[in-house]
Design a protein around this nucleic acid. Structure first.
Ligand code: TTP
Ligand code: MG
Length: 746
DNA sequence: GGGCAGTTGAGGC
DNA sequence: TTCCAGCCTCAACTGCCC
């Protein structure tokens, strides 16, 4: 196998001057023959193939092509140079061996010993004594032990790390209120303004380059000293005119050191000239190998080989390469400071197994955790993704997009079950997994969803249709199913983290928790209730978008008739389409597929129930979190509270609907005083076969089967790209690169 | 052709 | 004796629909 596959990464701090040969031998021996090793081998082979394709492509390039591409790159360079900004002083601070340092601080016994934080499965980090043996982050504990038998492995304690991080952030805030944390242990600061306002305190000299260095360095030294004083932890820092350089610089004198790179073009180019490409954040193992194959080892090589690079890589990539070679990157942190979370997930690894019930249980537990997180953070998601890792380390993801954002446990759970089931069924051999994960993305806060924009069909059927959303808001807030009432009114003034989350959105609509978690029978009464009565729509008069409860298509409606007509048509077409079996729905076994339709695709529409129970859950979640901190049993409190709030919620729903006249969406001719009557009527109005059919036809997950085989390399068309790549604001220090070769180009 | 849904892969801490 | 995480972001790509 290529030496890079499992070999020790020596680009990280604390890896200098150790016996790499011996360490690699141990690593090799520890891994050989394992499934992990085989997987890595496969990956390496694929990469090797990709690289050899790339080299073949490169050797076919003509002098002419390269010359032209080089000239085009030169024009880009001019543009980049003209935009070079050397006016800011950016600092990157990175705590030294963070988790390990916290543990060592709290347990003096650990101080002189090689130690690591993590488990036998995986180490998160190690102290410098352990690094001397080659023990490092992302290394399994048992291998760490092989490298260093006396290694002490400490389990992580995130509460401590968060607390330490908070203290560090307080110090940061003194120097730049708009500092930007990239993780618990590192952040960027722009101290330009601080220097301007307070610089004189640090130096009596005038403002030439040398004194600038003195001032900035003195400030950062002071900041690091403050951090150490307050946390007993050391930090390293880099000072440079932009973020990428600052980041590289913070690694230069690690641990407990700092490095200053002056805002001077020549000095920067000098610095970059000998900088190994792997030191640059965003260049990882794969890109390093690709670039090395092109004889690019240090950043200045990127400049030298800019012609071929332009022809081989995507425009995003070669733009990025140029910026690295020139030592140019972001000088403003504004865009980074406002970053919002894009996904939330939880996953777990276990001994590989194909035990279906075990896998299903794991999935369900993960969903519970995820929902708890969502509720605690007061967010809903639109896309649910199931992640699985087979016992041979192949990772697969299966996603489902909901018509509306949700955080309902029922919905997530049934979706997860369905996706998992589908994979199990699709697998030739019994699906054997070692990891399952669940993720929600396309997030929005419950406030963003806007309570006034959610309305049930019940409400729609009533006269409220003609009211403006504002009127509805007012009037709704006077009912007991008040959707605008925020969480604190219901739960009391519970604490909420507002320091880092500027967006404070209290729960106006959340989800039902563990409601009818047991398998349930699907009756057409349920069906009507879930599909028709509680389906929400967006109120956007005069034309409104509305998700049809039958076909799930979004339809534009301007009157009740439009909807009824559409629903009629849908139901008719469903009835006439082929029907599989004729078993009455209410005796359909409690099969996952059946639950799916009614839960995952419809239950999310239970907006009224959500509001009430959602708030309740939110309350109990916060309670449970508090209890957890106090070391109490959380499960009990959840159960007790759920019960209580649940019933309250039901009452709200009832009272809110009591007086509304209802119209049958199928025959249109009847009106009913309450939902029960309507449902009874609809039982007859719709045939069981129809319902069954509808459910059957909407259960299979939508999947795109992409044959995205990264092993087949293609080459990009030689095109003229002259635009400067605008760095994505939400993607600060790193920029992923990928060869994008389109065969058609050659 | 643009936009959306879905999948995979690279990368970082 | 066995044994390789869990959280996150972004880019590239395919297929489908409008
Ligand atoms: C690299 C890495 C870090 N972490 C955690 C543990 C680290 O203490 C923390 C910060 O990461 P790093 O800053 O990369 O590492 P470090 O602080 O432990 O050591 P250094 O002195 O080189 O900065 O993030 C992981 O959980 N997994 C990883 O793969
Ligand atoms: Mg660190």
């Amino acid at each position: 196998m290529a030496p890079q596959t499992l070999a020790l990464n020596t680009h990280k701090a604390g890896m200098e001057g150790l016996d790499v040969e011996k360490i690699n031998e141990i690593l090799q021996k520890a891994s050989e023959g394992s499934k992990f090793y085989h997987h890595k081998q496969k990956c390496q082979k694929r990469l090797d193939a990709k690289i050899s394709e790339m080299l073949k492509f490169k050797s076919a390039l003509t002098e002419e092509q390269i010359k032209k591409a080089t000239l085009q790159m030169d024009r880009l360079i001019e543009e980049l140079e003209s935009s070079r900004d050397l006016t800011r002083t950016i600092v990157h601070v990175d705590m030294d061996m963070f988790y390990a340092a916290v543990e060592m601080r709290d347990d003096p016994n650990l101080r002189d010993k090689p130690m690591a934080v993590g488990g036998t499965g995986m180490l998160s980090t190690s102290n410098y004594a352990a690094r001397k043996f080659g023990v490092r982050a992302a290394m399994p504990g048992f291998i760490g032990k092989k490298l260093c038998p006396e290694l002490v492995i400490v389990p992580p304690d995130f509460t401590k790390y968060k607390a330490a991080s908070k203290t560090v952030q307080e110090v940061f805030g003194e120097y730049d209120p708009n500092f930007c944390m990239m993780s618990l242990d590192e952040g960027y600061l722009d101290i330009t303004d601080y220097i301007h306002d307070n610089g004189s305190r640090y130096s009596e000299y005038s403002e030439d380059d040398v004194s600038s260095e003195n001032v900035a360095s003195a400030i950062v030294r002071e900041m690091r000293a403050k951090i150490q004083e307050k946390t007993q932890l050391t930090a390293s820092a880099g000072i440079a005119p932009n973020t990428r350089l600052a980041k590289v610089c913070s690694d230069m004198n690690k641990p407990n050191g700092q490095f200053y790179l002056p805002p001077n073009r020549e000095k920067i180019l000098e610095f970059v000239a000998t900088l190994p490409i792997r030191k640059v954040s965003g260049i990882g193992n794969v890109m390093e190998q690709q670039l090395k194959a092109l004889e690019i080892n240090v950043c200045s090589d990127l400049m030298e080989k800019r012609g071929p690079l332009r022809l081989i890589f995507s425009d995003l990539n070669y733009n990025h390469f140029l910026m690295i070679a020139l030592g140019i990157s972001d000088t403003r942190l504004d865009a980074w400071t406002e970053r919002e979370r894009k996904s939330i997930s939880t996953e777990t690894t276990f001994r590989g197994t194909n035990d279906r019930s075990f896998l299903v249980k794991q999935t369900e537990d993960l969903c519970r955790e995820l929902v708890e997180d969502l509720i605690q953070k007061d967010i809903l998601g639109k896309i649910f993704t199931l992640k699985i890792k087979t016992t041979d380390f192949q990772i697969k993801t299966r996603a489902h997009t909901f018509p509306e954002a949700t955080c309902s446990l029922d919905v997530l759970m049934s979706t997860a079950r369905r996706l998992l089931q589908h994979e199990m069924d699709a697998s030739a051999q019994p699906l054997s997994l070692r990891l399952i994960g669940v993720r929600m993305s396309n997030l929005m806060s419950s406030a963003e969803l806007g309570p006034s924009r959610q309305v049930t069909l019940t409400q729609m059927f009533s006269k409220s249709l003609s009211r403006t959303s504002q009127e509805r808001k007012f009037s709704d807030s006077s009912t007991s199913s008040d959707t605008t009432k925020n969480l604190s009114e219901i739960s009391g003034n519970h604490t909420r983290n507002t320091t880092t989350e500027s967006k404070v959105s209290l729960s106006e609509k959340s989800c039902s928790f563990d409601k009818n978690n047991s398998k349930q029978r699907v009756t057409n009464k349920n069906f009507i209730e879930k599909f028709l009565v509680k389906s929400p729509m967006k109120l956007k008069p005069p034309k409104m978008k509305y998700d049809c409860p039958v076909c799930f298509q979004e339809i534009e409606v301007d009157s009740l008739d439009t909807i009824n007509t559409h629903v009629d048509k849908c139901l008719e077409s469903k009835t006439s389409s082929q029907v599989s079996g004729s078993s009455p729905v209410n005796v359909v076994p409690t099969d996952i597929e059946v639950i799916d339709i009614c839960e995952s695709d419809i239950a999310k529409h239970d907006s009224d129930e959500w509001k009430c129970k959602g708030n309740a859950k939110h309350v109990l979640c916060n309670n449970s979190l508090r209890e957890r901190e106090l070391g109490k049993n959380t499960k009990t409190s959840i159960d007790v509270n759920t019960e209580k709030y649940h019933s309250e919620g039901e009452e709200h729903v009832e009272s809110a609907r009591e007086k509304q006249a209802l119209l049958c969406p199928v025959c249109k001719s009847e009106s009913f005083e309450n939902e029960l009557n309507l449902n009874c009527h609809l039982d007859e109005c719709l045939s069981l076969r129809t319902i069954n059919d509808i459910m059957q036809s909407s259960t299979s997950p939508r999947m795109s089967h992409t044959s995205n085989d990264a092993g087949t390399s293609f080459f990009r068309t030689v095109q003229n790209y002259s635009q400067v790549c605008k760095p994505h604001p939400s993607d600060p220090p790193r920029k992923k690169q990928k060869i994008s070769h389109n065969k058609s180009d050659t």
